[in-house]
Amino acid sequence: MTRACALHAEEVSYEVERGRALLDKVTLEARPGETVGVVGPNGSGKTTLLRCVYGTLRPTRGRILLDGDDAAALHAKARARKVAAVPQDGGVGFGLTARQVAAMGRSPHKRFWEGDTARDTARVAEALERAGAAALATRPFESLSGGERQRVLVARALAQGPALLALDEPTNHLDVRYQWELLTLVRDLPATGLLALHDLNLAAYFCDRLYVLDAGRVVASGPPGEVLTEELLARVYAVRAEVRVHPRTGAPTVVYLPPGLEDARR
């Protein structure tokens, strides 16, 4: 987990059928070690973009470059050694314990029919520890709560030892404490982070740069302070909001305003 990888999405499009594009020429860059957030309304293409990055989907046009190499040319396993993902759909697990689930993260590093080595075990234990899931290790995965599962899946991704970590709504199901712990962990990892997030305040605080997607296109990008404006929130999300830089965190902070509320500043 000492590497970081540069990600460059080059005019990536994904069409389910001719004329219906979930992604439309999305260009995104994450420098090594950066934490980049992807925000946008439901159905704007955040998940599709992440899927293209971690390899579930193949872009219909455009390229994903990892350290300058076309990801499509990489063998699936080689790619999984570079890019780890925490997808939204957790799955059921068929009775695997949390530790076994996390240990799956080692599988891209394995050859044909190779068992777990002492090094794998150490890696998995470390990953569980870092994701705050060490105490869950022996529990069956399906007996865990949503937040606990999420932490185990993060541990699995960490066990992969990725240079790029893609997380789709990683704070779903997590209580405030674990939201902060998880995002702090991701930001402090040497690996590059790509996060799809709904919570704009978390995105503003933890991400170095944000990309705002709307209907499959990038409509704004840059540091959170430049991107998250009241005008943009009104345009993209159709909500009224106040954005202030918080005096203590120094990050832009969004407060949503109910539609009926009179404008307080006037």
Partner: peptide
């Protein structure tokens, strides 16, 4: 099948997760 035992484990979490773990689904 034995050669794909790891991949089958990953599949319990869906094709999505399996792909992210390097399985050519």
């Amino acid at each position: 099948c034995l050669a794909r035992a790891h991949a089958l484990d990953a599949f319990a979490f869906g094709p999505e997760a399996a792909a992210a773990l390097g399985v050519r689904v």
